[in-house]
Design a protein around this nucleic acid. Structure first.
Lengths: 209, 209
DNA sequence: ATTGTAAGTGAGTGATTACTCACTAACTTA
DNA sequence: TAAGTTAGTGAGTAATCACTCACTTACAAT
């Protein structure tokens, strides 16, 4: 089946992401990609002259999805804590949907000798951090979080929460419910940020999902 | 220089760990190891018949060091919070000393098709988690942490803290001071666990290092 | 000194991999 | 329908890799 280049490129990127999950980002060969799509290996090189180019396209795709996952949704709440939760749960949902994400972001394929790409990824991370920092600041200003809380550090703890829950989920064979576990730990973390009554203030118990 | 097998094996394992940091765990070739030591490639195979055996030895070495790093030190404090801090700062110090550790623990080399090894690593992780959980429980019992804090979840947050700080340090070119950053965020995290006065209770300000 | 053993080597081998290229077949446009 | 363009292919190639093996050299014990 002959396809226009734009579609084939999408195929190749999607297949690379899929294989990254199955065999690991650095184990992917152009032959694997080709045979899974149902074309010959040479076809892959017609669309991406160097294998490295595939990874570049993958990175573009992933950063776009990550940004979309934490961006404000349509029916945005005016409660900063709820928005904070939404941004983080969004990441969990994205990872559940694309389990290869952590492995790809950490892979040498994207980092080794690829400064520009590396910088682009780190910038995306930093953007996420800034978004979280801003939300924490709003929560502090609204009196929902303690005033002595450092917003930047709190944001780093939240990012760590996402990373570590995702990591444990991946290494643990993905048996547990990523979003549920993430939500549970997020509640614990947030209760530590919360001002005044420490008494297990329930965190946005709404039926999300 | 001819060496007894025991020493050469140590050489090879140490070189593998060193190279894992420089080029990445999955990029290491037996030729790299050999030439860095100053022997021929065939020599490597005399001591480790299969490359996989090298990774097995590396894993044994690493898990031993990790356990040592969180184990109770000699002059053990009786304050559970101080011991908690010591266990975690110990991990930061270990990673500073062996920066390849995170990369190796996450590498496919150690996970792909190596169930027993995978299980052993996860058991080490679980042991760390249990140690932290126990310490958190003690801190709660001692009235230092909130009573409504779930010890297991708190331990997971602390592990996430270690993982994410180490990760950011690695990806960020190791420019910042890992132990200092780790200590700072640990203080923020612990202040969220702390009972009663939330007012930035300073965390074990002693001159540690 | 002789001999047995353990460490090291040189020179391979087959498998895998990214990448090339001359050529063909399928769509598109005139 | 003729001509041009774009996607796809078959058959390579050079490089790299883990691994092998017959052989040599260093060392220790007798």
């Amino acid at each position: 089946m002959r396809k226009p280049a734009a579609e084939r490129k999408v195929d190749i990127v999607a297949t690379a992401i899929d294989l990254a999950d199955k065999v690991g980002p650095d184990r992917i060969t152009t032959e694997m990609i080709a045979s899974q799509i149902g074309v010959t290996q040479a076809t892959v090189f017609r669309h991406f002259p160097r294998k490295e180019d595939i990874w570049h396209a993958v990175a573009v795709e992933l950063t776009a999805r990550m940004r979309a996952a934490w961006a404000g949704k349509d029916g945005e709440s005016d409660d900063p804590v709820a928005r904070l939760e939404a941004a983080i749960v969004g990441q969990f949902k994205l990872i559940r949907q694309m389990p290869a994400l952590p492995a790809i972001l950490l892979s040498r394929e994207l980092h080794a000798g690829n400064m520009p790409l590396r910088m682009a990824l780190m910038q995306t991370m930093r953007a996420f951090q800034q978004r979280l920092t801003a939300l924490v600041e709003q929560a502090i200003a609204a009196g929902r979080f303690r005033h002595d809380l450092n917003a930047g550090d709190a944001a780093l703890l939240l990012i760590g929460l996402v990373q570590s829950v995702a990591l444990r989920w991946t290494l643990g064979g993905r048996s547990e419910d990523l979003v549920a576990t993430g939500r549970r730990l997020l509640a614990v973390q947030i209760s530590g940020f919360t001002a005044g009554g420490n008494e297990s203030e329930p965190v946005s118990s709404g039926a999300v999902r």
